[in-house]
Amino acid sequence: MAITGCAGYGQTPAQPASPAPAGATPGGMCNAQPAQFAVGQNSTASVVESARQRSGAQTARILRPGQIITKEYDTQRLNLEVDGNGRIMAAKCG
Rank of each mutant, 00 (worst) to 15 (best):
A57N: 04
A45T: 12
F37I: 02
G28S: 08
T25Q: 15
Q76N: 13
G84P: 03
R77P: 01
A20V: 07
Q58T: 11
T75S: 14
G27A: 10
F37N: 06
Q41H: 05
A17C: 01
N31F: 04
D74K: 13
G27Y: 12
A60P: 04
T4P: 06
T75Q: 15
L78V: 04
V39Q: 02
G86D: 11
V48H: 00
G94T: 07
Q58G: 05
Q33M: 08
V39C: 04
Y9D: 11
R54D: 02
G40E: 00
A90N: 11
P26N: 07
T59M: 13
I88A: 02
G27M: 05
Q58A: 12
A22W: 03
Q11A: 10
M29G: 03
R61N: 13
G86W: 08
P34L: 03
M1L: 11
A17K: 13
R61F: 01
Y73P: 00
A17W: 02
G56D: 09
Q41G: 00
A7W: 03
A17I: 07
A91W: 00
A24T: 10
A17L: 13
Q58E: 09
R87N: 08
R54N: 08
G5A: 11
Q33Y: 04
A32Q: 12
P34G: 02
L80R: 04
C6Y: 09
E49T: 11
M89W: 00
C6K: 14
G86I: 04
R87I: 14
A90K: 13
A91K: 00
A22F: 07
A20K: 11
N85P: 02
C30L: 04
L80T: 05
P65K: 10
R52L: 07
Q76P: 01
E49C: 07
M29Q: 14
G86K: 05
T59K: 15
T44M: 06
I62S: 03
Q67A: 14
A22M: 11
T25G: 06
S43L: 01
L78H: 02
A22D: 14
Q53R: 12
N85Y: 06
A60N: 04
K71P: 01
E72P: 05
Q53A: 10
P65W: 09
I3T: 10
D83L: 08
Q15D: 11
N85Q: 13
Q58V: 14
E81G: 01
E49I: 01
Q15S: 13
R54H: 03
K71Y: 09
A24V: 10
L80D: 03
T44L: 09
N31W: 00
I68P: 07
